[in-house]
């Protein structure tokens, strides 16, 4: 009787509206996480002693359940999108920092020395040598961050219907319409797979210098 994409009116959004909302709630935090992670990782790579405590702190943050994180933030930001997005940004940060640090550290010492000898300043060296060589590691981190962020947005449903596609789960449960839950799960999964594929494509474009897997016999 109901089309797969006909949503109950209490969701206040069309299907595509929810998809847009979901993408915004998931991707903005990843972007924020990346912008904070880059300088932190650079500091960790440069001053080695910072890395272990940073790693410890990020691990503790990562082990806080998202739901608890949301609930605590309600006190400060109400039942809003901000409350959902802050924990997601923190998780992204946590996933990205170790990957970027390893990537930056994987730049061979000789390469850096060569860049210095050719007269690269610190900023140029960072942008033109370290960052490109660390790109595969950064993108690997982004793949995990983006997919887990897309998955976690749904939990926001529990704090005043801030879960975008996750809000369909509430209706599915309340009106006992499993199709809505299937729709929510599948749409989220498809978004995740698409985002992942786009990131893989991005890596291919950014790193033509990397040996292709399976090229050797």
């Amino acid at each position: 009787m109901n089309g797969f994409f006909d949503l109950p009116s209490d969701l206040q959004h069309s299907y595509l509206g929810l998809v847009g909302l979901h993408l915004r709630e998931a991707l903005l935090p990843v972007l924020a996480g990346l912008l904070v992670a880059l300088p932190i990782a650079q500091l960790c790579a440069r001053f080695r002693w910072i890395y272990p405590p940073v790693l410890g702190l990020t691990t503790v943050l990562y082990s806080i359940p998202s739901l608890a994180f949301f609930v605590v933030l309600i006190d400060y930001f109400g039942q809003s999108e901000t409350t959902v997005m802050i924990p997601l940004a923190v998780y992204s940060l946590v996933v990205l920092v170790p990957g970027i640090v390893d990537g930056v550290r994987s730049v061979p010492r000789e390469t850096l020395a060569a860049a210095e000898a050719m007269g690269f300043g610190p900023l140029r060296r960072y942008l033109q040598v370290q960052l490109p060589i660390a790109a595969p590691a950064i993108i690997a981190g982004l793949r995990v961050a983006v997919v887990s962020s897309l998955s976690l947005v749904s939990v926001g449903m529990l704090i005043g219907n801030q879960g975008a596609l996750g809000n369909m789960l509430y209706d599915a449960n309340t009106y006992h319409r499993p199709a809505l839950a299937v729709n929510s799960v599948l749409t989220t999964a498809v978004l995740g797979i698409l985002a992942d594929a786009l990131l893989v494509l991005l890596r291919r474009l950014l790193t033509p210098w990397m040996p292709r897997k399976g090229a050797t016999r």
């Binding site: 976690l152 749904s154 449903m157 789960l169 499993p178 999964a189 498809v190 995740g192």
Partner: peptide, 27 residues
């Protein structure tokens, strides 16, 4: 089978845990 594995893993990661929980609960 590395490629098949990567595909399965990506699909597994992309499935939202909370959504899956509610769906399984309904079913």
């Amino acid at each position: 089978g590395g490629n098949a594995l990567a595909l399965i893993a990506t699909a597994g990661r992309a499935l939202p845990s909370f959504g899956l929980l509610v769906l399984m609960f309904i079913w």
